[in-house]
Amino acid sequence: MERIILFDGECHFCDQSVQFIIKRDPKGLFKFASLQSDIGKSLLLK
């Protein structure tokens, strides 16, 4: 099961939150997709 975190790619706070998580996720359990990306849009539709 993938753990995908959707975030607003235009939001500075969101970007900093993603960076915070990445630094604390050494195993790379979380994946990220911006809401503006094709993958992000597709996930939102689901």
Rank of each mutant, 00 (worst) to 15 (best):
M1L: 13
M1Y: 13
R3P: 07
R3G: 09
R3V: 14
R3E: 08
R3T: 13
I4H: 08
I4D: 06
I4S: 07
I4W: 03
I4A: 04
I5W: 09
I5C: 11
I5A: 10
I5D: 06
I5M: 12
L6W: 05
L6D: 10
L6C: 04
F7Y: 14
F7S: 07
F7W: 11
F7T: 05
F7H: 11
D8L: 09
D8C: 10
D8R: 10
D8K: 06
D8N: 13
G9T: 08
G9R: 12
G9V: 03
G9N: 11
G9L: 09
E10Q: 11
E10M: 10
E10Y: 06
E10D: 15
C11N: 14
C11I: 05
C11D: 12
C11Q: 12
C11R: 08
C11A: 07
C11V: 03
C11F: 05
H12M: 14
H12V: 15
H12D: 15
F13N: 15
C14A: 15
C14D: 14
C14Y: 04
C14T: 05
D15E: 15
D15T: 14
D15Q: 15
D15G: 14
Q16K: 15
Q16D: 14
Q16S: 14
Q16A: 15
Q16H: 15
S17I: 07
S17K: 10
S17G: 15
S17C: 14
S17Q: 13
V18F: 10
V18T: 07
Q19Y: 05
Q19F: 09
Q19H: 11
Q19L: 14
F20L: 14
F20M: 13
I21Y: 11
I21P: 12
I22Y: 13
K23W: 07
K23D: 14
K23Q: 14
K23Y: 10
R24W: 08
R24G: 11
D25K: 05
D25H: 07
D25N: 07
D25Q: 06
P26L: 01
K27S: 12
K27W: 08
K27G: 09
K27Y: 09
G28Q: 04
L29S: 13
L29C: 08
F30S: 07
F30W: 08
K31Q: 13
K31T: 05
K31M: 07
K31D: 09
F32E: 00
F32D: 00
F32W: 01
A33Q: 07
A33P: 03
S34W: 07
S34R: 09
S34C: 09
S34D: 04
S34N: 06
S34K: 09
L35M: 11
L35S: 06
L35A: 08
Q36H: 09
Q36S: 06
Q36E: 05
S37L: 03
S37K: 01
S37A: 03
S37Q: 01
S37H: 01
S37F: 02
S37G: 01
D38L: 08
D38W: 02
D38V: 04
D38Q: 04
I39K: 11
I39Y: 10
I39H: 07
G40K: 02
K41V: 00
S42I: 00
S42E: 06
S42R: 06
S42D: 06
S42K: 08
S42F: 00
L43A: 01
L43F: 00
L44I: 00
L44Q: 12
L44C: 01
L45N: 06
L45R: 06
K46I: 02
K46A: 02
K46H: 04
K46C: 01
